[in-house]
Amino acid sequence: MKNIKVLLVDDQQLVREGLRRMLELDDDIKVIGEAGSGEDALIKAKDLNPDVILMDIKMSGISGIEATRRIKEENSKANIIMLTVYEDKYLAQAAEAGAVGYLLKDITQEELLRAVKVAYAGQSPVTPSVAKTLMSQFASMVQVNRKNILSRRQLEILRMVASGVTNKNIAQQLYLSEATIKRETSTIFTKLGVTDRTQAVSEAYTKNLL
């Protein structure tokens, strides 16, 4: 097995150091970077191109959930594992954001190493105390809902469109590429059954989305 490139994201340095020490005991795993905030995670994920990201959920500023959503919206190939002290409190949000795994921070070194390798293989590592079927169930529910309603990100973009903000400026404000904004805008048009910005805003007001 080649080295699995891992990015650590946690706002507590001691936690990052502990994770690094455990991971670096395995020759198949290489920690290529650390981020102390959600904002930093967005930059590091793009610059370092990790295979697996260990992402803390609760951070000041951009949360781990939001950082995960934005990283996946940029078409990142990284498989993201959420780290938390909460049982299944954020499981649904983690699945919706695109995380493949959900682990409690009190896991053992053996469990952590196994989880990274499982995620790298494209599977879903979940702490045993959390029902293993929940992740796939929530993900399926979210996929169905996405076909019928606008996501939170799409609503945010729609509000900016209604305010006359250009795609370029929307991209800058949301830390996304302009191509991503264009793609999301096109999806919004399709879901609303319209073909341009003016119609989208009008339809959004009709449906009480704004």
Rank of each mutant, 00 (worst) to 15 (best):
A179V: 11
L104W: 02
D56G: 01
T84E: 01
V130N: 13
L83A: 04
R114K: 15
D106S: 05
M82W: 05
K46A: 11
G38V: 04
L210G: 12
D27A: 12
T190I: 08
I81Y: 03
I81S: 04
V100A: 07
E73F: 02
L210P: 10
V52Q: 02
D106G: 04
E73T: 04
A45M: 05
V85Q: 05
I53N: 01
Q13I: 11
R70S: 05
A204K: 00
L25H: 10
Y175F: 13
E203W: 03
K168I: 11
Y90G: 05
Q137L: 13
R16C: 10
E87F: 08
Q172T: 14
N167F: 07
L112K: 01
N169V: 11
L155Q: 05
G33T: 02
R21D: 12
V6Y: 04
Q154G: 10
E17N: 15
K207A: 12
R152E: 13
R146F: 10
K182N: 08
E34G: 11
M135I: 15
Y102I: 13
V161Y: 09
A204D: 04
Q199N: 08
E96C: 06
R146H: 10
E184S: 13
I32R: 07
A41Y: 06
D196C: 13
R16N: 14
K168M: 12
A94P: 01
